[in-house]
Amino acid sequence: MIPAPFDYVQAESAAHAIALLAEHGDDAKLLAGGHSLLPMMKLRLAAPEVLIDIARVPELAGITRDGDELVIGAATRHADLAGSALVRAQAPLLAHAASLVGDPQIRHRGTIGGSLAHADPAADLPMALVALGGSVQLSGPDGARAVAADDFFTGFFETALEPGELLTAVRVPCRPDAVWGYQKFVRRANDWAIVGVATIGGRIALANMGPVPLRARAAEDALAAGASPAEAARLAAEGTSPGEDIHADRGYREHLARVLTRRALDGEHS
């Protein structure tokens, strides 16, 4: 399968990428690792006329610490995130989530910014960012802004990114000592979660339980009110709206959310 023809431009800087986006408008797409975009282009689900390659923009790379937060460049690959001593020490949930994306080859190409901007509700990193209470830095022609993870995912494969904006960095709070759990239920290797759960310090995020990565608010509230993890987990599917597919109907996904939340709250990592 071969994508429809397009022009390829390599961005020199974030400002250059934003200028190129302004110049080409809806005809352009940003390309980083390409591991969500290129498969869509091969299936002709996407046919941009211009690809703006941001993978090698220096200012979009790198992981640094800024006070109580980690700042992760949008073009940071999953393999770099999973292998980073800084991330493993300060946000181990995020490193673990990155280590479960796809397979080794995919982790050598895919980027955190690409995964978040693609906003697949079944994906690992959107759920991890919501669990951690992180945020994303967006830059556009009108300047830069920060959007909290809870507000960034607005619909099925939809985000708060405005046309012409570039996701430049991801910020997550340093939580070196917080108890965390991670559960990803899959039928096959190298697959998306049928249901995923990430928990840290009383926050519970769910993957594939609705059009966006969701907080399990009822379970979180129960925990805050003193319920045991097992009691809270029984509420994990409250307020969710999971889809149905060949792998699972709604009831099965709700059951998985409850079981996996209990395991995650017990600190289990899958």
Partner: peptide, 24 residues
């Protein structure tokens, strides 16, 4: 991007060459 039969090394790292543009 599933089967890995197209795997090659790019700068020493395994990648699936069906999901990489030669331009990249």
């Amino acid at each position: 991007t599933s089967c890995g039969a197209c795997t090659v090394l790019l700068n020493g790292e395994s990648v699936k060459s069906c999901t990489v543009l030669v331009a990249q």
